[in-house]
Design a protein around this nucleic acid. Structure first.
Ligand SMILES: [Zn+2]
Ligand SMILES: [Zn+2]
Ligand SMILES: [Zn+2]
Ligand SMILES: [Zn+2]
Lengths: 138, 138
DNA sequence: TTAAACTCTATAGTAACTATAGAGTCAAGT
DNA sequence: ACTTGACTCTATAGTTACTATAGAGTTTAA
C-alpha cells in the first residue's frame, strides 16, 4: 500500500506520516523502484496508535516514549500510568487558565453596548491602564 | 527611560517590547547617542494596553486593529464589541475541546493500576487500534 | 581603567505540522 | 508511442509570539 491509502486507513495525513518518519516515530518503510514509500498492513496499527494518542493531545515526545515502552513488554507499566496522570494535570491547568479567561471576557463584554463611539467604548476603557475598571479586577 | 525600566512599568518583557516595535504595534522611539531606545512616559500606556490585551489572549493582529481604531475616536465602536464576542467564542470552543479531552483522559486513566507489565497495561490497550476499549468511545 | 550592568542586532529555536514548488513516477486511454 | 492526470518525491517556507543566545558596543561606578 502506498502512502495515500495508509493515510486513509490510519487517519494520519500524508505529511504527518512523512513527518513521523523523519522524527523517528515510525521506521522508514521499503520503497518501490520509483522511490515511493510502500507499507504493509502491520504499519497501520502503529500509525493508528499514534493518531489515537494525538487525539488525547499527547506530545510526539510522549508518544515516542510510549512506543519505546511497547518494545519492552515485561517492564512494569507505571511509567505509562504516571504519564497519563501528568498529562491530565497539564490539561486541567490549561482548562483552569481558560476558564479564568472566559470569566474575564464575560465580565468585559457587557461594559459596552453597540451604540457608542471609540472614545466612549467601555471595553477599550477597561483595557486601558489607569482605568478603575481593569480587566484583571475581580 | 530606557527599555528595562519601560519593561518593568508596562509589564512587557524587553524582548516583547522590541518585538512589538518590529511588528508595528508601537512606533520606534528616539535613541540615545549610544543607540539605546529612549521612551517617554506616554508610551507606558500603550504598552500596558497591549499587555492587558495579551492577558485576554487577544492576538497581536487583533490588538493592532484595536490600536488603529483608537486613533479614530469618533468611529462607532461596534467593531470592538464584535471582536470581543468573536474572541470569546474562540475561547469557548477551545474550552469545550479541552473538556472533552479531560473527560477522555479521566475515563482512560482507571483502565490501569500500578502493578501490571507493559503488555497488560490497560491504558496502552485502550490506545491501540482493534481494541474494543477505544479512547473515543462513549 | 576596568569591571559590571545594560543595550544593540541578528539569528535560531519552540511544536507539529501545512502548504508550496519543482520534479519525477505510474496507469489508463488514444 | 504519447499524453494526460493522479500520485509521489524532496526541500523549503510559514504558522505564533515570543525566548534565548552570541557577539559586539555603551554606560556607570569604583
Ligand atoms: Zn503531555
Ligand atoms: Zn464598545
Ligand atoms: Zn481572538
Ligand atoms: Zn498501565
Amino acid at each position: 500500500m502506498k502512502i495515500s491509502e495508509m493515510s486513509k486507513r490510519s487517519g494520519c495525513s500524508i505529511q504527518a506520516i512523512r513527518y513521523y518518519e523523519k522524527e523517528g516515530l515510525i521506521t522508514a518503510p521499503a520503497r518501490t523502484e520509483g522511490n515511493f514509500r510502500l507499507y504493509g498492513s502491520e504499519e497501520i496499527e502503529r500509525l493508528s496508535f499514534i493518531n489515537n494518542c494525538r487525539a488525547l493531545d499527547l506530545s510526539l515526545s510522549e508518544i515516542k516514549h510510549l512506543l519505546e515502552l511497547q518494545s519492552l513488554p515485561s517492564t512494569p507499566c507505571e511509567t505509562v500510568n504516571v504519564m497519563i496522570d501528568d498529562h491530565l494535570n497539564v490539561i486541567e491547568t490549561r482548562l483552569a487558565d481558560l476558564q479564568k479567561l472566559q470569566s474575564s471576557l464575560r465580565k468585559l463584554r457587557p461594559r459596552c453596548n453597540s451604540k457608542r463611539s471609540i472614545d466612549q467604548c467601555g471595553i477599550l476603557e477597561a483595557l486601558s491602564p489607569n482605568s478603575n475598571h481593569s480587566v484583571s479586577d475581580g
